[in-house]
């Protein structure tokens, strides 16, 4: 602090910067950045690794005797473990997966959207301060907990109502998955609804529309891309959900639309294979990879579609 010139102390600079030679600084920064770039490439390579691993192991599966891509994609029978003749047709597993996902969406979409509309259009800050954290906690509950509830609470409950419900069934699993994905739909849709500018609300209300009409005819259409993408992401989550179906949905692959029956989903089969005592590199063990590849492609399709819709069809205001 001689002659009134500030020294490079924290007192004068909000950030303390060690003064080094230009060269040292440039070299060390280049080092740090290239290291970080390397890590970034690694996380990006992850997608490639997933595709290569699943593709390679699935190709081993399709080279096995009695297995073909055509039968896999068109077959309606899946019995890799039982019977003298093994059949590898993916449709029963896809059917079970979709049954659970559709039940879940039937519950989560209306409830989630109404909650989102409430939070963005009706709720005052105090109520929001209760409901938002509650939804976050609901989203943070591990799926194995939902699976346990589906098995020990929902299933006995449904059995009291109807005799046609089995000890393992698609219905309880679907309901549990529905509760699981509800917070996803709510929080993403609410973000979309809140992004709609206030002039649109004020305009509609000023023209004499009721709040319900404003929400239905103005706000929801304006936020539609965000809402659809939230539903697609939630659907991907429901399709890939594992622990709930492994506990509550059962282990019988079958083509059925009856929610009271025992079914098996793609994820459920993968868990059964990983837990079972089937030998590594046997045909049924390898079939796990083909199922995983199918699951990966389906969920990838859903998330990609969601991301693209959100990006491309976002209504830009201002």
């Amino acid at each position: 602090m001689k002659n009134g010139i500030p020294s490079t102390s924290k007192k004068w600079f909000p950030v303390s910067v060690r003064l080094r030679s230009r060269l040292t600084q440039k070299v060390s920064e280049a080092g740090i950045l290239s290291g970080m770039g390397l890590i970034t490439t690694l996380s990006v390579l992850l997608t490639l690794i997933i595709i290569i691993v699943l593709g390679y192991e699935a190709s081993l599966f399709f080279q096995q005797d009695g297995v073909s891509v055509r039968d896999f994609l068109t077959g309606f029978e899946w019995n890799p473990l039982l019977g003298s003749e093994k059949h590898f047709g993916i449709w029963p597993l896809v059917c079970g997966t979709l049954l659970v996902a559709v039940i879940a969406l039937l519950i989560a979409v209306p409830a989630g959207l109404l909650t989102a509309v409430f939070l963005s259009e009706y709720a005052n800050p105090r109520v929001r301060a209760i409901i938002k954290p509650a939804l976050e906690v609901l989203a943070g509950i591990p799926t194995v907990v939902y699976g346990f509830l589906a098995l020990t609470v929902f299933t006995p409950g449904f059995k009291l109502i109807s005799e046609n419900v089995g000890s393992y069934n698609a219905l309880s699993a679907g309901v549990a998955v529905g509760i699981l994905i509800l917070p996803i739909i709510t929080s993403l849709s609410e973000d979309a609804l809140r992004a709609v500018p206030n002039n649109l609300r004020e305009g509609a209300l000023g023209l004499g529309a009721t709040p319900a009409e404003t929400s239905f005819r103005v706000i929801l259409p304006a936020a539609l891309s965000g809402i659809i993408s939230s539903i697609l992401l939630a659907a991907a989550r429901a399709i890939g959900e594992t622990m709930i179906v492994a506990l509550a949905a059962g282990n019988t692959p079958k083509l059925t639309l009856n929610p009271g029956e025992e079914i098996q989903t793609m994820t459920g089969f993968m868990v059964q294979m990983a837990l079972g005592d089937v030998s590594n590199y046997g045909v049924e063990y390898l079939s796990m990879y083909a199922v995983a590849l199918t699951l990966f492609i389906i969920t990838l399709g859903f998330t990609l579609m969601g991301a693209i819709i959100r990006r491309r069809y976002r209504e830009e205001y201002q």
């Binding site: 990006v44 997933i50 890939g240 699951l295 990966f296 969920t299 859903f302 998330t303 991301a307």
Partner: peptide
């Protein structure tokens, strides 16, 4: 593209990561 890739990775079911871990 990298950004889209990260979004997609977040959507991959955890059981698929389990299989990748099992293999690798």
């Amino acid at each position: 593209l990298l950004q889209l890739n990260i979004t997609n990775l977040a959507g991959v079911p955890s059981v698929v990561y389990g299989i990748i871990g099992l293999t690798i």
